[in-house]
């Protein structure tokens, strides 16, 4: 394993007015691995991703991507680094005056010199992967919430990124669809070997996909561990989280049984 982290956050602090959201985030993300960030709603998981993307500047602390300080980069360097990214926003952030097809085709049209014919091939392939055939000409407002998520995923993956950021990729999908999405991740990741940073509430299931699980609690990453170790960690917050999210299943089984 390559021991140098590809992304490193060092003591990131960020507050909005009186509210201190991130209180010193330390997190390393390794090449080719899937890191899952879990934690309660509204505690700053999406905010961490926005810091790595360079969309928000921290009050203090540093973000290193490929060993370079994100906040000291020129616009050109930042652009180059972002060209390796594939991003799914929590709200999908589709371009709402473009059709589904144009949304997914946009990165190809603006960033590559591929011909329209090739673009159509690549876009349709990705849309098929996400089970979205037949919606090419629809507009985002005409899609269901889960479909929008999947269009966002197709758009994030269309340029074969080196690092992907998925903010709650399966929220709003039914169980079968979300399982299918996980299979797609698994397949594309083994094929392309990308690094993944995923925010998810889909807790026991996402552990199967994760190489590392990080718990955000109280503005701090409590620990970042492989899933097996995560489930047996002594950290009181992690224990509480594991019991709360996974314990329930066993409890209800006990009651039923």
């Amino acid at each position: 394993m390559n021991t140098e982290p590809i992304i490193q956050l060092i003591d990131i602090k960020k507050g909005f007015g009186p509210q201190q959201v991130l209180k010193g985030i330390n997190l390393s993300i390794y090449e080719g691995k899937t890191t899952v960030i879990v934690g309660e709603s509204g505690k700053g998981k999406s905010l961490i991703i926005k810091h790595i993307l360079g969309l928000i500047k921290p009050d203090s602390g540093k973000v290193f991507v490929f060993g370079k300080d994100l906040n000291k980069m020129s616009g050109k360097e930042l652009k180059e680094i972002r060209s390796y990214f594939g991003v799914l926003f929590q709200n999908a952030a589709l371009f709402d005056s473009m059709t589904v097809f144009d949304n997914v085709a946009l990165p190809l049209r603006e960033r590559t010199r591929a011909s329209e014919g090739d673009i159509a091939g690549m876009v349709n392939e990705k849309l098929k992967l996400m089970d979205l055939e037949g919606s090419n000409e629809k507009f985002p407002a005409q899609l269901s919430g889960g479909m929008r998520k999947r269009v966002g995923l197709a758009r994030a993956l269309v340029l074969n990124p080196r690092i992907v950021f998925f903010d709650e990729p399966t929220t709003g999908l039914d169980v079968a669809k979300s399982n299918e999405i996980y299979r797609v991740f698994f397949r594309t990741q083994t094929k392309l070997g990308y690094t993944a940073v995923i925010v998810s509430h889909d807790v026991p299931k996402i552990f199967k996909l994760a190489d590392y699980v990080a718990l955000l609690h109280d503005g701090i990453i409590q620990d970042c561990l492989p899933p097996e170790d995560f489930q047996t960690s002594d950290n009181p917050f992690i224990r509480e989280f594991v019991e709360k999210t996974m314990g329930l299943i066993y409890e209800s089984e006990e009651v039923e049984g």
Partner: peptide, 25 residues
């Protein structure tokens, strides 16, 4: 209004993350 809505629904952030400069595009 068009650009304001794009800003508020994170579409401009999305463009930037795709390494597409909204100033140019």
């Amino acid at each position: 209004a068009e650009i304001g809505i794009m800003r508020n629904s994170e579409q401009i952030d999305a463009l930037e993350c795709m390494a597409i400069d909204p100033h140019k595009y």
